[in-house]
Amino acid sequence: MKKLIRITTVPLSLDKLLEGQLRYMSAHYEVVGVSSEASYLERVAKREGVRCHPVSMTRKITPFQDLKAVYQLYRFFRKEKPFIVHTHTPKAGLVGMLAARLAGVPHRLHTVAGLPLLEANGIKRLILNAVERLTAFCATKVYPNSKALCQIMIQERLAPAQKLSVIGAGSSNGIATAYFSRAHFSAETLTELRETLGLSSAFVFVFVGRLVADKGIHELVAAFQALHEKGVACQLLLVGPLESELDPLQATTLEVIAEHPHIFTTGYQNDVRPYFAIADALVFPSYREGFPNVVLQAGAMELPSIVSDINGCNEIIEHGVNGLIVPVKSVQPLFEAMYTLVTDLDLRNQMQANARSSITQRYEQQVIWEAILEEYRTFDRDE
């Protein structure tokens, strides 16, 4: 059986962004998962039923540590002789593709699920541009996980067009719609959760993700404050961890989150489904994404979504059909969309009715997995 090595910078990405996919591929290839944080990686590998190999990688610009990771991966590839190395996340892509090229791995694949460089300026932007171009140079194929992201990569000259392709309708892993379903939760369970969190019966907006500036949290908090100043009865539920190192929130925003009586936080949650189930709408005003799983999950849980007009989000959401699309980094349009969802019951019910079917018809997980496997099999046929 030919060997497939899948690599992410941190095992959380293997765990959440690619959940189930390694196990599926292991029926067709000998699969090895590679990431940092050995103990976490071991748990993921055990669940997926595959072998794992830890390599220390960082998410920051750390040249000496990155060179060490390249060397360790090079030695590992020379020993394992994989048929395919497939990387995800920027740092894993850089070190993984460089090491795979040096080791002579025949099929070097990299999935792009977002471009941090789009929010960078100056020297940092130049460095990140160079990193993406080097990653693409070392790869034999590059897979942006949305059609718009593919066009951005071509426009920014980050990779040759002939190396780029989008698998299926987009997304790196699709969504298990049977799992992301309200059917798993009784009314009693949801009532108990609302009471535990301190939520009232008023409208609940939910945000799921890292609480960082790039996710539009500053604009979201400002728009929510404006709603309350207008006398709109609603609540904001923030589900996800603060990340103070890479992209911290401003002190003023943190203060509002901590002190506003109608903003509730949960921290990181391993299972986000109950929080979708007690909410009335997702609000996700991110600055940049690849193909956001959160929007897929919310739709499968029958929530209309307010998203920013960026690649990925504007491919999942059709304005006025299963959600609303607003300009990126804009408080007033976000406020108006949130106000509309609270006050226009007919529109909200219509979008809610369309939410789940819009996901099941296009992004069912099994369909995405089969499309990725078919891509791998093209390499078998080329041998």
Rank of each mutant, 00 (worst) to 15 (best):
S201H: 09
T177R: 01
G170E: 10
V204I: 15
S201I: 00
G198H: 03
H184S: 04
E219P: 00
T196P: 00
G168H: 03
I167T: 10
I175F: 13
L190A: 03
E192G: 10
I217G: 02
S200H: 08
N173T: 04
G170I: 11
K215T: 07
L190S: 08
E219H: 04
Q162V: 00
S201F: 00
F207R: 06
E188S: 12
V208K: 10
A176I: 05
F205S: 07
S181C: 05
A169Q: 13
N173A: 14
F185S: 01
G209M: 01
S200Y: 07
G174Y: 14
L190V: 07
T196V: 08
E192P: 00
A183Y: 11
T177N: 01
L199K: 08
V204E: 06
L193K: 09
F224V: 01
V208R: 04
H184F: 09
S186Q: 06
Q162Y: 01
S181T: 08
A213K: 15
Q162E: 15
K215S: 07
V206N: 03
S186R: 13
Y179R: 12
T177M: 02
V208M: 06
L199D: 08
V166H: 01
G174N: 06
V221H: 04
R194C: 11
A169H: 10
K163I: 09
F224Y: 12
S165C: 13
T196D: 13
L164C: 10
F180V: 04
F180H: 01
A202I: 00
A223I: 02
L197A: 08
A223G: 07
F185C: 00
A213M: 09
I167C: 10
K215N: 12
